[in-house]
Amino acid sequence: MKLQKKWKQWIYCRILEIWQKNKNNILDRTAEDGFIHACHLNGIFQALRKEEVLPVKRFIGILEKIQLTLGVLFLVVFFTVIIIQIITRYLGIAVIWTEEVANYSFIWAIFMGAAVMVNRREHFNFDLFQRKLQNKKKASLTIFNDSVLILFNIFIFLYGMQVVTEFWNYTWASIPEMKMGYVWISIPIMAGSMIIYSLSHLMENIKLLKVREVNE
C-alpha cells in the first residue's frame, strides 16, 4: 500500500519533470505566456500511462544515478590521490602510481558526467533558431537533433569497441598488472548510455508531437 503511494508520487514527479523540460517544445506562444491548456497536461498524462513509459523512465533514472555516483566517486578518488602524491613526496616515499591512477579516474569521471549531462540536456547548444520555430516544427527539429546525437554515438560506440579490443591487453606504465582496457572501456560505456538517454528523449518528443497533433 505504502509502496503504491510512493510509486504514484514518483509518477507525478516524473510527469512534472517532463512537463518542465518540454513545455517550450509543446506549448505555443500563448501558452508560454501563462495560458496552459489543461488538455495538454491531460494528454501527456494519458500518453505516459498508456504507452508504458514508466519502466523505461525508471530505468533511465537508475542509470543516471549509477553514472552520477560513479562520476563523483572517481572525482573523489583523483582528488584524494593527488593529496596522497603531495604528502608522500614530502615524506620522501616514492609512490609511482599516483599520476596514472589520478589521470584514469579523471577520464572516467568526465565521461560519466558528460553522459549524465546528455540526459539532463545540459550540453551547451544555440537555441536562437530553435526558439524562433513554432510548436510542431520545433518538436521535429528536436527529434532530428536527437537522432544526430544517436547516430554519432553509435559510431563512437562501435569504434570505441574496436579500440577496446585492440588495446585491451596494453598495460599501465606504473602498475603492469592493470590493463589499459579498463580505461578504454569507458568510451563505449559513455557512448552507449548517451544513446539510451537520447533514445528516451526521442521517444518522449515523438509522443509529445503526437499528443500535440491530437489536441490540435
Partner: peptide, 14 residues
C-alpha cells in the same frame, strides 16, 4: 549543425 541546435561539443565531434 551549430545553428540548428546540436550541442556544440557534439558538433565538434561530428
Amino acid at each position: 549543425l551549430m545553428l540548428i541546435g546540436v550541442p556544440i561539443a557534439f558538433v565538434i565531434g561530428i
